[in-house]
């Protein structure tokens, strides 16, 4: 191979990057094992329910759950709810991430502002965000905006702190080099800070996508007229545990698919990074 991988140890630019899991590196043996394990657990669950070891009022049989999922999907019942939840999550994610990125970059570049805002940001971050849900409900009503506001507070802090850290941890030499080559503050941002902070921002995106959906669902659960959280709360209200589990499984799959998409984008934008085995 013509690409030698001589490492100087001073190679700060890439050595600094944290190792991360990569999708698609699992071998066929591992895949088979994973499928086998899933099937095994589901069969054991089903059997233990049938012989009465597990109470299927609290832990409904997998077959029942799948049937309910099928019904909800087949009848189209779930889609309006899912759409509302995803809409809330998307709005919370977009506004939260945008505000987090903007403020993160600003505070990382203007030291005075960072010092000024630090205690307040710490305070708000220390607040358990769930307690905000009731007050948002009063402020913004039962519609989607109380959920968006709640999701926003969850997403914002993760993206903000990661961006701040990402920009501040940029290698000094890279900044100096770009400045010597004539970079203006704007060019520094574009060529050095943003790409360098991307690894941090992406690790926060994975978490914050999940949090945006969590925010939406929890908000709906506390008070709404539509959405997955509402559907689950309705099922719980009539002691329909199968419905609760069905809602859980549907959400789980949707979040998995979204995470896969984030992975795709990440792999494209971070293609310059050395892979662990390359």
């Amino acid at each position: 191979m013509s690409t030698t991988t001589e490492r100087t140890g001073r190679n700060a630019g890439v050595a600094r990057q944290r190792p991360r899991r990569r999708a698609g590196v699992t071998g066929p043996g591992v895949r088979a094992g994973q499928v086998g394990l899933t099937v095994l657990v589901l069969i054991a669950w089903e059997l233990l329910c049938r012989v009465g070891v597990i109470d299927d009022f609290f832990f409904p049989r997998p077959s029942e759950i799948l049937k309910t999922v099928w019904e909800w999907v087949g009848s189209g019942f779930v889609f309006p709810h899912l759409l509302i939840t995803l809409e809330e999550a998307a709005l919370a994610f977009i506004t939260g991430a945008a505000a987090g990125l903007l403020l993160g970059f600003l505070l990382a570049r203007v030291h005075f502002l960072e010092q000024l805002f630090e205690p307040f940001l710490k305070m708000f971050n220390a607040l358990p965000r769930v307690v905000l849900a009731p007050i948002f409900l009063l402020w913004f009503g039962l519609g989607i905006w109380s959920k968006v506001a709640f999701g926003f507070t969850l997403v914002f802090f993760i993206v903000f702190f990661n961006t701040l850290e990402g920009v501040k941890s940029v290698d000094r030499v890279l900044i100096d080099n770009a400045r010597m080559l004539g970079a203006s503050e704007r060019q520094l941002l574009r060529h050095v800070f943003i790409p360098s902070a991307l690894t941090w921002i992406f690790s926060s995106l994975h978490i914050s996508v999940g949090f945006a959906i969590t925010g939406a669902v929890v908000g709906e659960y506390l008070g709404a007229s539509a959405g997955m959280g509402y559907a689950i709360a309705q099922a719980q209200g009539v002691f329909d545990t199968t419905g609760v589990f069905a809602g859980m499984f549907i959400l789980m799959f949707v979040v998995l698919i979204i995470d896969l998409l984030v992975n795709r984008v990440e792999r494209h934008l971070l293609r310059w990074r050395p892979t662990n085995n390359g």
Partner: peptide, 16 residues
Amino acid sequence: RRASYMFQQDALLPWK
């Protein structure tokens, strides 16, 4: 602005 600097460490932008 009339000077270029060659650093001891790697100063190439790894994403370019």
